[in-house]
Design a protein around this nucleic acid. Structure first.
Lengths: 214, 214
DNA sequence: ATAATTAAAGAACAAAAAGAGAACAAGTTT
DNA sequence: AAACTTGTTCTCTTTTTGTTCTTTAATTAT
């Protein structure tokens, strides 16, 4: 999970277990409980690993009053692969085919499941229009975009055309031209000179609400 | 979150018991009643825990006139903002047209944006099959379902047919029959006697990942 | 193979937590 | 007034829990 090269293998195991199971414990687990949960028979052994984690600043040093093994903020923050993200993903605006991205004034943050984003910087746009309807991306859907300026052929990208229009399309890049392909039988693919098209991100997730109307 | 994690084990137990059983007591329970209910033999022991809760601000300090143990607003609040929201929405399994819901063994929790769920109890299913493809719900998508047993005509619901098969369809309920309508031109609507169809939830959100394959 | 590191188990210990019971004061009931 | 209830305080004992130490096995490096 997390790579703390200065931790021993077992210390890392213990840390991973703590991070993973923290929500299962109502109270911070005691050493004995951890032993049981991890299949150890001796507190003494486990204590040495915990001690290592304390020195690494990943576990709170107990102050003789508060018992149980508590993770520190540092440990929680470095849990990058966990399900819970601190801030969430910023919702930056709406994208309609043929128009610049319409930015929202107050950037909101949406709590997005880890499965719908990547480790890299992501942002959220709201889709306007039906140009991707055949791919199941409907008017009003939110899309999670990983911010980067290159894409593979076939990817669905946010493309900026002639530095003015933004659109969400499949991309096909050849040395001679760049083609933006909608997922809508009624709309034709568009051909451009490579320099006309600027990739602003790649689609990694999509969401839809059936209750809220925005 | 409120950290009443500085409570000792027994203090937490007492608090949990009070929160859980408050409706069972007509009057705020006396120490002796609590002892009896919790299986303790000495008021003195229990009083020490209550005293800890008083200092934590979770229990009202009694004033000799009003007897019994009273919870404070703070304690009640910490219960309503409990763990459910922190955990996210449970991912309980996969739904394929014509098959029972295939439950996952270890329930995972996904952090879902507020826009995709409701205030009521929700759960997540993964869609198998193409029966809702015309509504932009594709094979492999996750759907957020609000758990309830009634629906309005036109809603997309999780329907249990003859207590065996589960499916995700539009519902149309008339006094004579219940019709489940797929969003796929190749599949015909299905007609049932009302008693054959049991609504298990209503679709409120949908998500799709373009990176993870599950 | 030898040495060093890492793990595990268990014993022993001190501090904290938890429990039991007695005693007491202030109220309530009889 | 006497008996009872109820919260509070106190002492004492038992259990739980973190810590330290020693011994032994397993793994890794030299």
């Amino acid at each position: 999970m997390n790579d703390y090269s200065f931790l021993t293998r077992k210390q890392q195991d213990v840390l991973d277990f703590l991070l993973e199971s923290q929500s299962h414990f109502v109270q911070p687990p005691t050493l004995d409980e951890l032993c049981l949960a991890m299949g150890l028979k001796s507190r003494g052994s486990l204590h040495k690993h915990i001690h290592g984690l304390i020195q690494a600043g990943l576990v709170e040093a107990p102050n003789r009053k508060q018992r149980g093994v508590r993770l520190t903020q540092l440990a929680l923050k470095t849990q990058s692969t966990g399900l819970i993200d601190d801030l969430g993903v910023p919702f930056v605006g709406a994208i309609a085919a043929g128009l610049p991205i319409e930015a929202v004034e107050n950037v909101e943050y949406m709590q997005v499941p880890a499965q719908l984003k990547t480790e890299n910087r992501c942002y959220i746009l709201q889709v306007k229009g039906d140009s991707m309807i055949d791919d199941g991306i409907l008017d009003g859907d939110w899309v999670v975009i990983e911010q980067r300026n290159h894409a593979n052929n076939g990817d669905i990208v946010v493309a900026l055309i002639d530095k003015t229009e933004a659109t969400l399309k499949h991309i096909l890049q050849t040395p001679r031209e760049t083609i933006l392909i909608p997922a809508n039988q009624n709309i034709q693919p568009m051909h451009f000179q490579p320099h006309q098209v600027e990739v602003q991100g790649v689609l990694v997730g999509q969401m839809r609400s059936y209750t809220k109307k925005l």
